[in-house]
Write a protein that binds this DNA or RNA. Sequence first.
DNA 1: TTTCAAAAATGGTCTGACCACTAATCGAAT
DNA 2: ATTCGATTAGTGGTCAGACCATTTTTGAAA
Lengths: 203, 203
Amino acid sequence: MTNQSKMKVYQEVLNQIRQFIEEQELKDGDRLPSERELSEQLNASRASIREALRAIELLGLIETRHGEGTFLRTYKPYHSVELLSTFVLREVKTKDELLEVKFLLEQVCLNQLFADEQWDYSQVKNLLFESNDIHTELFLRLFEEYGNRLLLKIWHLVTGFVETVDPKGASQVQYEELLKLISQRQYNQALDYHASLYEKQCS
Amino acid sequence: MTNQSKMKVYQEVLNQIRQFIEEQELKDGDRLPSERELSEQLNASRASIREALRAIELLGLIETRHGEGTFLRTYKPYHSVELLSTFVLREVKTKDELLEVKFLLEQVCLNQLFADEQWDYSQVKNLLFESNDIHTELFLRLFEEYGNRLLLKIWHLVTGFVETVDPKGASQVQYEELLKLISQRQYNQALDYHASLYEKQCS
DNA sequence: TTTCAAAAATGGTCTGACCACTAATCGAAT
DNA sequence: ATTCGATTAGTGGTCAGACCATTTTTGAAA
């Protein structure tokens, strides 16, 4: 109705829901209107409402609890990994782009942190290294350190998709090395080392 | 039925569809069974089938054509990136963060182009400067030049949001200056100049 | 053989019903 | 008045069937 009438109802519903969330300033954990309410307010059948909700549920943006309702949820890209990977693995074309963007974002993060003279690396130093995915854990910390939440979310998003395509684990030793370079303020070496972790992907 | 009976039907359907694709070795462009066929074969209602299909359609894994059918499709993460961003940005829409990310992405683009010795800046030189938004036009061209479509998409999205928050127009002269620096391969000056365009935003 | 209208197949959408689960309500026993 | 329990209302989960819009196939007429 609003834009192209060619757009499917469930896509319109998605936009309306997004708009609703913005207007009401809903946050993680808040409850959305019930499917029946949405159906009435958005002038669409409950089936269409559900198609939209199921879609963003699969993306991990909402959480539905039987008998309770539908709730906003902190975005967790790991949600539908198994499913996605089997679909996606046969197409490697975009894998390189994903990896490259992830790499570039991380380089940006490192560069910005290094450029800050007053940056206290000691907090990062105390990072626990007992996680399964050290790389993600470390850069999650570094992005938080930098403080730009949008940049962090974008990186997190891309990382989620990368894991879908490229489920590799990095060795712990490598990141202890990276962390050592950072703590010694050998920034150029740190950047190069970080880059080297990505270079062997080209096979 | 198969695993946890707690799992929703549409998720079971997703697994079955994935399995079907593997068994039949379907490739991009191949057609899936019709919704009614799937409904019969998988012993689920057409509504549940559709919920599953809509979900993976939003993920960009399939494409539906009215009257024709449902087809496998080359996976492109950009689809969901677009939708996700609008959700992800809901809490983050601080003007400063938006501007900073936009700036950083552009710096990345410039850096990567400059690092490429064989880059031919002459094509960019021929850019028409009759658009209303010179900045967007120029960097759209530069990002395309670099070739990473995902990076371009992310930048484009961020730029779109920035414009809704900060509807400024840049003067034409400034970008002729920037372009001049690029064409003269004075890359460091170009980066600094680009940065200076953002610095006066801190009011 | 070619052409084109009818029929079949397919996705898009809606309605209404029923079940399962949860939380709120209300009344009875304490 | 308080507590506890069953009832009830609200919500998501699922299904069956209908109708429309678009595309493809079919088959008869030229």
